[in-house]
């Protein structure tokens, strides 16, 4: 059943092999002349300010908001695609349903918009 996907998997395998190979050999074929400054985080030439361990750092909240919005709209598309493929067969019922669907989402969208969720200052 997965036969049609075989080329895709092969492509994936080839790309993965290439990328992994490249990433792995990189440290070995290049020169190694380390010094302490090289290993620091890059901060425009000044001594790096103390940073929390990776991942514990602060992230602007607006990014979370964007991520959430993305999830919602992405999920919306999940429903729109099947509809789009079979729109002609669904007829009026499908049209009304999808309009309701988009409309409902529109309410939330309007809310987010109006309350400044889409603004980046």
């Amino acid at each position: 059943m997965l036969q049609p996907y075989l080329p895709l998997v092969l492509m994936f395998a080839l790309a993965a092999a290439f990328a992994l190979f490249s990433a792995t050999i990189a440290p070995y074929i290049g020169p190694r002349r380390y010094n302490r400054a090289k290993m620091d985080a890059y901060e425009c030439g000044i001594e790096p300010s103390p940073q929390p361990v990776v991942g514990g750092g602060r992230m602007p909240i607006a990014y979370y908001l964007t991520a959430m919005l993305f999830i919602l709209f992405d999920i919306e598309m999940v429903f729109l695609y099947p509809f789009a493929v079979s729109a002609d067969r669904l007829g009026l019922f499908g049209l009304v349903e999808i309009a309701l669907f988009v409309g409902t989402l529109g309410f939330a969208y309007a809310y987010v918009w109006r309350r400044g969720g889409l603004d980046w200052n």
Partner: peptide, 12 residues
Amino acid sequence: FFVMVVAAAEVV
């Protein structure tokens, strides 16, 4: 599909 939607809503 529905589960995915719910999961997304839960994430948010």
